[in-house]
Write a protein that binds this DNA or RNA. Structure first.
Lengths: 139, 139
DNA sequence: GTATGTGCAAACTTTTTGCACTTCG
DNA sequence: CGAAGTGCAAAAAGTTTGCACATAC
């Protein structure tokens, strides 16, 4: 992933381009396993040993509210982040913390079709996410 | 919900029946809005003013690992619990912390059918949960 | 130059832990 | 009675906050 592209994403959102923001955005992309704030912190510390933990949290918040990254829903009280913005789903391992992205355009269509005919009273659906819980083959 | 039924559920799992466990199990059922540990604590404190916060966490853990209740996946670092065990989905409000249960047998069938034809390489799906994110009509 | 962002440390919130005491079966 | 559960208080883990200093634009 090109650094210039990352910088442009910040600019497009009207955000100031700081080395910390670029580094954190890059880290979330690179650490493609839905990293925690801690993992991101460790990762960017290698390049910028003086970045503060608090800054990581603040920047992650900023990136989330500007829709440059997303939070991943988990059963844990530790937040995890995802750099992929397009509509996709997640595979959750029952036996570990592993979470993988899952893309299935056909599935999206099937679900979309279902909800085209079936409205939910009192609720307007804006986004649909699937959580597929199971086991990865360890081979 | 009958207390005797709740007690039996504990017995069936080989768990000792304590007043705290029964009260917490009942609280999760009664507080049907996917309560936090804190809400459960407050609720049962009315009846048992000497129950400890730590006990609530321990009991919730026990109930979850014995599949008497479930954790609800959220984007927050506060855990929430669900007493409904049958296969269902959740409606998440974008603007608040409101989470509602959503039952749709037809949808389950559509999804089941989709995955009957389409295997995910390297992953065995055991359970599918949908998160429907959007807005509740405030009327 | 000025508004905005960062580093640091302290505080806060949620959850976990250890251990003496109590209770269930 | 003995194994398992609870209460309490302290600690850990994760996150937020306030403020002086630094930096982007």
């Amino acid at each position: 992933m090109n650094i210039t592209i990352l910088k442009n994403r910040l600019v497009e959102k009207g955000l100031r381009v700081t080395p910390q923001r670029v580094a954190i955005l890059e880290a979330v992309e690179r650490l493609h396993n839905h990293p925690t704030a801690e993992k991101i912190f460790e990762y960017i510390r290698k390049k910028f040993p003086n970045v503060a933990e608090g800054t990581v949290y603040k920047v992650l918040d900023t990136l989330v509210s500007n829709q440059l990254i997303r939070k991943v829903n988990t059963e844990k009280d530790i937040m995890r982040y995802d750099a992929i913005l397009e509509n996709h789903h997640h595979l959750y391992c029952r036996e570990s913390d592993r979470i993988e992205d899952y893309f299935d355009e056909e599935l999206n269509k099937v679900i979309e079709k279902h909800f085209k005919n079936k409205m939910i009273p009192g609720f307007k659906v804006e986004e649909i996410r699937l959580q597929l819980i199971g086991k990865f083959n360890t081979r």
